[in-house]
């Protein structure tokens, strides 16, 4: 019917790219990341989500062995 891994992979890849870029744009905004204990969580979570999304897409699109 539908391979749900494709929309999940796509959505998290988009989230990952978007949040990583936002993390780099705001990298010098120390005040913004003060509440996150000084950690740029956007870059960390962005990369994690991108990797997760790509793994989902990889498993959804790879050819199954006969």
């Amino acid at each position: 019917m539908v391979d749900i891994r494709i929309p999940i992979g796509l959505m998290f890849s988009i989230f990952g790219i978007l949040i990583t870029i936002f993390g780099f744009i705001t990298i010098s905004d120390t005040e913004m990341y003060q509440k996150a204990l000084g950690i740029n969580v956007n870059i960390i979570m962005g990369i994690l989500m991108l990797v997760f999304g790509l793994i989902m897409l990889f498993f959804a699109t790879r050819k199954k062995k006969a």
Binding site: I4, M11, A36, I39, V41, I44, M45, L48
Partner: peptide
């Protein structure tokens, strides 16, 4: 079908969306 497939998507959103909160608050 739509409810079930969306629930899977929502499951991952809930887990990934709350993950940074767990790490930051525990570290704090």
């Amino acid at each position: 079908s739509s409810a079930i497939y969306n629930e899977v998507l929502q499951f991952f959103i809930i887990v990934i969306g709350l993950l940074p909160l767990v790490f930051l608050s525990l570290k704090d």
